[in-house]
Amino acid sequence: MAWIYILLGAVFEIGWAIGLKLSEGFTDPFFSALTVVSIGISFYFFTKALSMIDIGTGYAVFTGIGATGTALIGMMFLGDSGGAGKLFFIGLLIIGIIGLKFSNGSSEETQTE
């Protein structure tokens, strides 16, 4: 269940990171509110996950998914620069996230909510 919480938190992290861009310095009320709500939801799920898994692994996976998703969405929809080098390193980040997830299996607690 912890990994589902990490994933949900990371999705909302992507949302608030994109929201920061779209809020134009918190001058757009709609995107500003959406950003603040996304931050709250993101950290709610992240906090729940950290009660079940190691903080180092949890934080690395959480931020890695958030950074990867934000970078890809920025390149695809917001006009951020891309290129082979950037995509290569995003791929390395994804490999690292997967590696962390699978290397943590023996220390993950089996708590249920």
Rank of each mutant, 00 (worst) to 15 (best):
M1P: 09
A2L: 13
I4S: 10
I4M: 13
I6E: 00
I6Y: 00
L7D: 12
L8M: 13
L8G: 05
V11K: 01
V11N: 01
F12T: 13
F12R: 14
E13D: 11
G15E: 09
W16I: 06
W16P: 06
W16M: 08
W16E: 07
I18V: 14
I18A: 06
G19Y: 06
G19H: 05
L20V: 01
K21V: 09
S23G: 09
S23F: 06
E24R: 15
F26E: 06
D28R: 07
F30G: 03
F31E: 03
S32K: 01
A33R: 04
L34E: 07
L34P: 06
V36R: 11
V37Y: 04
S38C: 05
G40Y: 05
I41Q: 06
I41S: 08
S42P: 00
F43N: 13
F45G: 02
F45V: 00
F46N: 01
T47L: 12
K48N: 10
K48E: 12
K48R: 14
A49H: 02
L50R: 02
S51V: 03
M52N: 10
M52P: 05
I55D: 10
G56A: 11
G56L: 07
G56I: 00
T57F: 08
Y59R: 03
Y59P: 01
V61E: 10
F62E: 08
F62V: 04
F62N: 06
F62H: 04
T63C: 09
T63K: 04
G64T: 03
G66S: 03
A67D: 02
A67P: 00
A71P: 08
L72N: 09
L72G: 09
G74W: 10
M76I: 15
F77P: 02
L78H: 15
S81W: 01
S81I: 03
S81R: 03
G82M: 14
G83A: 11
G83F: 08
G83H: 07
G85C: 05
L87P: 12
F88G: 01
F88Q: 05
F89R: 13
G91W: 11
L92H: 05
L92Y: 03
L92G: 05
I94T: 02
I95R: 13
G96M: 10
I97W: 02
I97K: 04
I98R: 13
K101P: 09
F102I: 05
F102D: 01
N104W: 06
G105N: 10
S106W: 08
S106F: 11
S107T: 04
E108I: 15
E108K: 14
E109I: 10
Q111F: 10
T112K: 13
E113T: 14
E113N: 11
